[in-house]
Design a protein around this nucleic acid. Structure first.
Lengths: 336, 336
DNA sequence: ATCGGGCTGTATAACGTTATAGAGCTCGAG
DNA sequence: CTCGAGCTCTATAACGTTATACAGCCCGAT
């Protein structure tokens, strides 16, 4: 097998415990011996056996991040930030994905990986408050995204209502009146969809525009295909929309495709705004105006909160952290 | 902590070893006691502590997959397949990314995660044959992608030369003569870029077309931005290309954007073909013709090969496995 | 002188699991 | 009846780590 503490101890002529103390500084070690031990470690190439360490102290040094989909660039970017942040704290991040599946989400919070990880960051889409409250595992849990509220866990999310308000306001400022929303969801568990819909409605009403339910397209998922079919439906209306607020960039990209198929132009005939600011949108034709959440800080804050819980340092009350966002205007609303 | 073997043993009135044998059937157990133990397990809700098991038998049940970039959907899809496959074999897949950084790739094959994982699947972009041969770790390693050859490890990849040949042949069949390639790379370590360039050249020569070095655009990376700038350069030529073979779909999407910026049409003025068949391409405007590698089987085969090595079952010679691909024609070459 | 208290260092008992050696028991063959 | 074989089951030693208890030692304060 590999090199163990015992090998180092023998090589440096000290006890096991001393080597352990050099490695993780639980107790001070004399300068002279510390150097000797460190040299032995370097020479033999020691690295601690995590299984043993975990067995002993109950921690693995691995935290998990479970996202709904891998191939949504939004989550890929958040995950990237989280992996980097975990690394700087000496943790390894295990990336998992739920496929937006309720059963998988339940398994995860119930601790399917219980014995492997120190804690979990979950971006739920199907779980409700009750599911989270019913959870029995005592491993720290951090939630990201706006799916679940009022549960005793740290929670990182942007203000979906406010952000949606800003997005729709932008469309209003272009002089558009018939503004559609694509990405409402029939399932009550899909909180963010409701919140963005609410922001949409609030913005309409504060602009003095009436809310027309026919302009709200319900989608099954939140991918490009859903944007495509949603927009196709909207274009069949006798009075089709002049602007569209899409639940996310993927839906917006699908919608743009549908608009082109109908031989209409973006933004001249229909202006489109998305949500997430993924790279696809920057290079789409036309490039996509969008709400840009601070993905880097979402990943960072989630990891930091979780590690703080894992290490039991700040045993503060569960916090609700709102991350910043900004409007990024591009060709899909302002032409060129 | 959780329920341990000892708890079960006490509850069922048998020894530790018997419970262990019921759990993993290493030795036969009498029918009567088996039932009693099984009932105790169900009642107390026992699940084995992986750290302890791994400490004992030297395996962690975790394998790692290291890809160059998280936000390239090609790798996201391969990773998704790999995660699923690992799950069906009872393994957990740890997803890592190298950021296409040579140092990170070196650290990984040298075993930075040595004590955490049972084996590694790596998609290298900067490593050469010598780097892999110099590796000292004895954990199983499986390589994917065509970066490295002739090393004693399993290797999964598609035939880049043949696939590129097919791609260019398709452009030729459209009657285009001035065909460009975007995504050549100055760095000798970037094997796949060379291979796709070679396939491009072979297809040209077998079509009786001459090779014009001015039509080959070198890029720093392989993202949308690189396609954008590469194409801009090509369009500045006195005799710009009528068709483009892009190293991958992201570059192709960037190139399409550049073509639109120049007020030219795809495919009427410039036909574009990509490589990877990522979802972005299917919903781009126009939708992207591409070479579609079998990403699902790449992920699956890589995981299966690695697990076979980890478990030391088929101690066969390192295999070179070629995965299938096909040409998918869409609007960017055949109009509509 | 003696005591108390910082320092450094050591020996050792866990953590939960599995493989090995072996202890009982029954039963059929010698 | 005795002995070995075959079946169950048990006791126990690891695996590599860390926390606890403790043993020296030196030094300043009593």
């Amino acid at each position: 097998m590999g090199v163990s503490l015992k090998d180092i101890a023998k090589h440096a002529g000290v006890s096991l415990a001393t080597v352990s103390n050099v490695v993780n500084g639980y107790r001070p070690v004399g300068e002279e011996t510390r150097v000797r031990v460190q040299r032995a470690i370097d020479e033999l190439g020691y690295s601690p056996n995590l299984s043993a360490r975990h067995l002993r102290n109950g921690r693995t040094g691995i935290i998990a991040l479970a996202i709904p989909e891998l191939n949504n660039p939004y989550f890929a970017e958040v995950a990237g930030a989280a992996i980097r942040e975990a690394g700087t704290h000496g943790y390894t991040l295990l990336l998992d994905y739920t496929d937006s599946d309720r059963q998988k989400e339940l398994l995860l919070i119930e601790g399917i990986r219980e014995r492997v990880i120190d804690g979990l960051i979950l971006s739920p889409v199907q779980l409700g408050r009750a599911d989270v409250l019913a959870r029995r595992s005592d491993k720290p849990l951090v939630l990201i995204g706006e799916s679940v509220y009022d549960v005793p866990h740290d929670h990182i999310a942007i203000d979906n209502v406010a952000a949606s308000h800003v997005a729709v306001q932008h469309l209003v400022s272009l002089g558009r009146h018939r503004i559609a929303f694509i990405g409402a969801h029939p399932d009550v568990h899909r909180q963010p969809a409701h919140l963005r819909l609410r922001g949409y409605q609030e913005a309409l009403s504060s602009a003095g525009l009436s809310f027309d339910p026919a302009l709200v397209a319900v989608t099954a998922q939140f991918g490009r295909q859903d944007g495509l079919t949603g927009m196709r439906e909207l274009l069949k209306l006798s009075e089709p929309p002049e602007a569209v607020f899409a639940y996310n960039d993927l839906i917006a990209i699908g919608a743009i495709r549908a608009i082109h198929e109908a031989n209409l132009r973006v933004p001249q005939d229909v202006a489109v705004i998305g949500f997430d600011d993924i790279e696809d949108g920057r290079f789409a034709t036309p490039s996509l105006t969008t709400i840009s959440p601070d993905k880097e800080s979402i990943g960072q804050l989630a990891v930091r909160s979780l590690i703080a819980r894992v290490e039991g340092k700040h045993v503060s009350e569960p916090a609700d952290i709102q991350t910043p966002f900004r409007l990024v205007t591009r060709e899909s609303t302002i032409g060129r």
